[in-house]
Design a protein around this nucleic acid. Structure first.
Lengths: 196, 196
DNA sequence: TGGGGACTAGATAGATCGCTCTAGCAAGAA
DNA sequence: TTCTTGCTAGAGCGATCTATCTAGTCCCCA
């Protein structure tokens, strides 16, 4: 049924936006039903596991979306991993600006909040981050960078991206993303130059 | 009065720990009084502005502490900014490990959470981040790196640190901090080599 | 046409939230 | 002593939280 999927998706979409911006504890289920226009009963019909299940699906959904975005940018760069990195950071900066410094990483806000307080959600976030790291590592390896080096480069790149998101949202300024992007492009260039 | 200051500080200390780990919305005032052992009445005696004032002081306190830590490490490195960067990331990784992946950046969890939901606390976080960036920029400049370049390097370094904290806490693994630290040490070396 | 599953709708429970209030205690000042 | 000030102590307010529960509606299919 079309409306069935619609309601469930509207709940997920609204939750994703609210949690990405305000965190897990900061997002109330009342807010979710109001923002999504869905009836309260539907929330527990589609997500019998309650708020935690809802958050889990939001995290996985955001993870898949971001992964797909990365793969798309990587495909477009067509093997040029330096261009890929530059394009990825530039796109991130653009998104942050366009959304008035509200939308950055889909899971980081929740990830930090639940890391010490909710083991289920922490491990979900860990899986998502790992899927991103695996994707980036694969692209770097395909460009000829040795496996270990590619992994370190991916860790560094994702760290720089996540941290720049924190600074950008807080300072309302994308210069951290610009600086981090330039530095990561150079690190990638160096890794390419070092390859055998 | 000694006990006066003691109670106030105990409230601040307990709040700092709880908010650093669980965020602003995720930390209840009941939790704070329980953890600190302070009576509820004292909380509003010392912090008449309520939870928001408490958070503001927690953020500023954490900011000062972290700044002092950075300055201490910078002093110990005695002008060698590469050693300073390496020592800073290594110390961060050590702290994260020792606290079982609970204590990393004192303000990042709250910063992400309030960036879009509480303008007062967002700007407090912005001031703290700016104070750190200023301190780092000054150290890089003193090592002979031109002002603009020093600023970009500081932005990149803080981004990498904050993001590596996110990954470390979520993945329960400090390899992001190790990778980011090595990359930032190299970026610093390069900035030094480029100087006039 | 009638039965059944999917979904809507919202009242309500029970706990917890931030916060206010009053009362009392301890110690220095007059 | 007596008064004042700073702090302790916790009951309790109204609001909001997550979650449950019962009814009712809709539509497909037999």
């Amino acid at each position: 049924m079309a409306s069935t999927t619609g309601t469930r998706d509207r709940i997920l979409f609204a939750s994703a936006e609210l949690m990405r911006r305000g965190g897990y504890a900061g997002t109330g289920l009342k807010q979710v039903v109001t923002a999504s226009g869905a009836p309260f009963g539907s929330l527990y019909h589609f997500f019998p596991g309650g708020k935690e299940q809802l958050a889990e699906e939001v995290l996985r959904g955001g993870g898949s979306f971001f992964l797909a975005l990365f793969e798309h940018i990587a495909d477009e760069a067509d093997g040029d991993v330096v261009a890929m990195v530059e394009s990825f950071f530039a796109g991130a900066a653009e998104t942050v600006r366009v959304t008035d410094y509200q939308d950055a990483c889909p899971i980081a806000t929740v990830a930090l909040e639940v890391a010490s307080t909710n083991e289920t959600l922490r491990s979900t976030c860990a899986e998502v981050f790992t899927s991103w790291l695996d994707a980036a590592t694969r692209r770097f390896e395909e460009a000829g960078i040795p496996k270990d080096r590619a992994r370190l480069l991916s860790l560094t790149m994702l760290s720089a991206l996540e941290g720049a998101f924190v600074l950008a949202r807080t300072l309302r300024d994308t210069s951290a993303l610009d600086a981090a992007g330039a530095a990561m492009a150079h690190a990638t260039r160096r890794a390419l130059a070092d390859r055998g």
